[in-house]
Simulated assay, not measured.
Amino acid sequence: MTVTASQVKELRETTGAGMMDCKAALTEAKGDMEKAVDILRKRGSATLQKKAGRVANEGIIDAYIHAGGKLGVILEVNCETDFVARNKDFKNFVHDLAMHIAAANPLWISRDEISPEVITKERDIYKEQALNEGKPEKVIDKIVEGKLEKFYERTCLLDQPFVKNQEITIKNYLGELVGKIGENIVIRRFDRYLLGEEE
């Protein structure tokens, strides 16, 4: 099947991916726009894995202050080159991220940062809840794992659905940007401040 220039243009505008990547994805998806978007997303995640080992010591620090000045976020995101640090897409990503953190209040960037003690405690709570609800012994482990996934979704930045597009997680959004820019991008650290909140 032939992929038209207008299809490539539409997919490019939707995803921000390169022209050749869009054409290849559309060809693979036999012209189905939704499938082509999924293909590009998966490739973005694959690119993210490939680039993850490269050193990222450039980047920017950004801040987001919510209307009324009672909630604010300061955030550092790193990339490999100063050129990318000045890139509009990169800057937009960092600002979106700061706004997302203000709204979604993650506790950690990724699951790797959570101490084993916290995970053990959560598992114990979920197991106790399932037993108290009279759930059969054979399904308790599955219930605990499901609740643990929800816990990651609530508390880990990379697992959270992006506030501006609930269809994707922050990890998907990061993967798409890495695929588009071609550099390793690392969310280094953030702080979220709520007026009057205790440290």
Rank of each mutant, 00 (worst) to 15 (best):
I39L: 11
G72A: 15
M19K: 05
T120D: 15
D62A: 12
E28T: 14
L97Y: 06
H100K: 02
E122D: 08
M20E: 04
V144F: 01
A29I: 13
G146T: 10
E113Y: 10
M33S: 09
G16I: 04
H95S: 12
C22W: 02
W108H: 09
W108K: 06
A63H: 15
I185M: 03
T15D: 06
V94P: 02
G18M: 10
S110D: 15
T14D: 06
I61Q: 06
A67C: 03
I168K: 04
L48N: 03
A5G: 09
A102W: 02
E199R: 09
T120Q: 14
Y126F: 15
D38K: 03
E117L: 05
V37S: 07
Y173T: 00
I74E: 00
Y126M: 07
E128R: 15
Y64I: 10
G53V: 11
I114L: 12
I65T: 01
Y152W: 06
K9I: 02
A52M: 12
Y193C: 01
E137T: 02
T47Q: 14
H100Q: 13
T47V: 05
I140V: 15
A85W: 04
E197T: 06
V84D: 09
R123Y: 09
F151P: 08
K142V: 11
R188P: 03
V37A: 13
L131H: 13
A63Q: 10
L26A: 13
C79P: 00
K164Q: 07
S6C: 07
G146E: 04
I60G: 00
K35T: 14
I143F: 14
A104S: 13
T15C: 05
N105V: 08
G134P: 08
G53R: 13
F190N: 03
I65D: 03
R86V: 05
T169R: 07
R54Y: 05
E76F: 00
G44C: 02
A104W: 03
G44H: 04
R188T: 05
R43G: 09
E10W: 12
G134E: 14
Y126S: 01
T2L: 11
I61W: 11
T120R: 07
C79K: 05
Q129R: 13
I119A: 06
R41W: 13
A56V: 14
V55T: 15
Q7I: 02
W108Q: 09
A56H: 05
L75C: 08
